[in-house]
């Protein structure tokens, strides 16, 4: 089938070409779950991101349409729980054309890699995103070592 090396080379070249084009089409292949919207009917809990820097963990959670009274955050040791409920404020006397936003009661819990200082956790709710800043407990914080 292949008589010369250049034939094989050409075949792989064509495959690379296809791959490049596909990658341009889907700019981030394999991470499609990052798109889409929260609280569609069927997915009933907020999506979250966890970030870690030296002294803190930072958490972002997508909580559109949820006021701060409807959210509950519990921290104990390295255990974190976010629970709450989402309900849509349906207007009275309106005809419904489309309902895509789902209503739900949710609870998600996480085990963080280190214990956190529960007394100094900061939580902020801004534009439908919950931001949590959890400082690591003293014993878990990185220590700088001085060289003698």
């Amino acid at each position: 089938m292949f008589t010369r090396m250049s034939d094989i080379d050409r075949m792989f070249g064509a495959m690379d070409l296809l791959r490049n084009r596909m990658e341009r089409l889907f700019s981030d292949p394999g991470r499609s779950w990052l798109q889409g919207s929260a609280f569609r009917l069927g997915s009933d809990s907020p999506r979250i991101n966890i970030m870690e820097s030296g002294d803190n963990f930072e958490i972002q959670a997508e909580v559109p349409g949820i006021s701060k009274d409807e959210l509950e955050i519990n921290v104990q040791g390295n255990y974190l729980q976010i629970s709450g409920k989402r309900f849509v404020d349906k207007p009275e006397g309106y005809k419904v054309h489309r309902e895509e936003i789902g209503e739900s009661t949710f609870s998600r819990s996480f085990t963080l890699p280190n214990d956190v200082d529960a007394d100094n956790v900061e939580a902020a709710l801004k534009d439908g995103v919950l931001y949590l800043k959890l400082p690591k407990s003293e014993a878990e914080k990185p220590k700088q070592i001085t060289i003698n």
Partner: peptide
């Protein structure tokens, strides 16, 4: 536009 502090260890949603 979400701000990122530190390294992301777990990610379920991104800038869209």
């Amino acid at each position: 536009k979400l701000s990122v502090n530190g390294s992301i260890t777990y990610e379920e949603f991104s800038n869209v």
